[in-house]
Simulated assay, not measured.
Amino acid sequence: MNSNDYVKYLTEQFVQYMNRPRDERKTQREERKDMRGPVHYHLFGLLPYACSHYISNIKRMFNRRH
């Protein structure tokens, strides 16, 4: 794909986006935002999940002993 085709594609996509009603664009944006996970997972990957899982396992083991 040469640069002229790419510019043409981008222009078509932009025009299609702008031809949609404003409320439809807003709902589509919100749906994409909702599909993403929480921000800390999005920014840091699985590290927050792994830490919370590890901590919950430690708490569970501690509660079983007492």
Rank of each mutant, 00 (worst) to 15 (best):
K8G: 03
N57S: 03
H40F: 15
D34K: 11
Y54N: 03
H66V: 14
A50E: 14
T27I: 12
V39M: 13
A50W: 10
Y54T: 01
R20V: 02
L43T: 11
R60S: 08
S3Q: 12
L43P: 04
Y49H: 11
K26P: 00
Q16P: 00
P48N: 08
F44T: 00
E24S: 06
T11V: 01
D23V: 10
C51T: 15
H53G: 14
R36A: 11
N2E: 02
Y17A: 06
R22M: 09
E24M: 09
V15I: 14
F44M: 04
M35V: 01
V7S: 07
N57E: 09
Y54G: 15
Y54A: 05
G45Q: 00
R36Y: 07
R65K: 14
Q16S: 02
F14L: 05
R36K: 03
S56G: 12
M61Q: 05
K8A: 04
D34E: 14
L10K: 04
Q13K: 09
K26A: 12
E30C: 02
Y9I: 05
F62T: 01
R36V: 12
Y9D: 08
R64F: 09
T11A: 02
R60H: 07
V7A: 12
R20Y: 02
R22N: 10
Y9F: 15
H42R: 14
N19H: 07
C51V: 15
E24N: 01
F62G: 03
R29Q: 08
L10P: 02
K26I: 15
G45K: 01
R22E: 11
L47G: 01
D5V: 03
Y9S: 12
R20S: 02
D23R: 13
